[in-house]
């Protein structure tokens, strides 16, 4: 598995995302620019200029029409994917840590940072998936996180709930109707949740945390189904379609990196079997912590964005698809 190495950003990557067809990768970094790449060969498709600060998050709607981004310049922006035109800017009092569309692209959420004079909140906008449509100025829903600030959030299946992950290791389920808290659970002991990514059907999700574990949790009742322990703080986790694996990325905290060798930092993508919770393999390459791992929606590859400023795009080889556990073969034979 030879990765494609993309070194188009000048600073560390914060998020990388495939579009729904998996042919384009969008990436954001601390260098203020959003980039779009062909996933097949790593060629640059275009850039989106306008943000005045480090970018934290990016997302694209399922039809690859609109692109949302958020960053440290306290704005959340909407772009025309095709032309790179800025369509809408929402301004806030603190940076936007996470943006995400719901499953049909009609709603967009943003997570705002807690800061002096600004509370941590989740804002939701109703979006019309059309580049010529006028997008609303006002949010349709605003959830204020009192107890612990939200770090990540996303929409569940049918946009029934918003699930948010918090700095104190809890996840909370909010009703989409009234924005009230329905359920809460502490899943990572007192360590911040760093990522939350959905299964394809958005009925369950995976969280990663600085407590060195990743967990698989149901959206409906926040039950922890699986736990994947590692020996390093995790920054990101995702689930692969087609094969029942999860990919975890992390490494020694960015601040400590200069003091450790690449060998020490554990800057590897780790593959676990989703159901058996066993580690299957690791992919080396980055020389800084992995800040985000994203998987191709068809499960044919994955890419990772690192603190080292590189995006590594991997296409899985045949052995990856051939590998099965005995009991899985048994099960397949039954069907």
């Amino acid at each position: 598995m030879r990765p494609i190495l993309i070194s188009g950003h000048e600073r560390s990557l914060t998020q990388v995302k495939y579009n729904k067809d998996g042919d384009i990768i969008f990436s954001v970094s601390k260098d203020h620019v959003i980039c779009a790449w062909f996933s097949a060969n790593g060629e640059r498709l275009g850039t989106y200029h306008g943000h005045q600060g480090a970018l934290w998050s990016v997302d694209v709607d399922p039809t690859t029409t609109l692109l949302a981004s958020g960053g440290a310049d306290d704005t959340m922006r909407l772009w025309d994917v095709k032309t790179g035109k800025l369509l809408k800017t929402w301004e806030f009092h603190s940076s936007i840590k996470r943006v995400e569309f719901n499953e049909d692209g009609t709603r967009l959420l943003g997570v705002t940072e807690k800061r002096q004079g600004a509370v941590s909140s989740i804002v939701v906008y109703d979006i019309t998936v059309d580049v010529d449509a006028k997008q609303p100025d006002e949010h349709s829903l605003r959830i204020v996180c009192q107890e612990s600030k939200a770090t990540v959030a996303g929409f569940s299946y049918l946009s029934k709930f918003i699930i948010s992950g918090h700095e104190d290791g809890t996840v909370t389920q909010w009703s989409m109707k009234d924005g009230l808290e329905e359920l809460g659970a502490t899943v990572h002991e007192n360590e911040p949740i760093t990522d939350l990514q959905w299964s394809q059907d958005r009925t369950y999700f995976i969280t990663s945390s600085k407590d060195k574990t990743a967990k698989l949790i149901t959206a409906h009742d926040l039950e922890v189904l699986k736990t994947y322990p590692t020996d390093t703080p995790l920054n990101s986790a995702c689930m692969t379609p087609k094969k029942d694996y999860v990919i975890l990325g992390g490494g020694q905290a960015a601040a400590d990196v200069t003091r450790t060798s690449a060998r020490q930092g554990k800057f590897e993508a780790r593959f676990f079997h989703k159901i058996f919770e066993e580690e299957i393999g690791r992919v080396r390459g980055h020389f800084g912590p992995l800040n985000y791992v994203a998987v191709h929606p068809h499960g044919t590859g994955y890419c990772s964005g690192g603190e080292d400023g590189y995006i590594r795009v991997h296409h899985f080889d045949k052995p990856y698809f051939d590998f099965t556990y005995e009991v899985e073969r048994e099960q397949a034979a039954k069907i």
Binding site: L225, D244, E277, Y325, Q331
Partner: peptide
Amino acid sequence: RRRALEEWL
């Protein structure tokens, strides 16, 4: 493993 897989399915 068999149990885990069955429960999951």
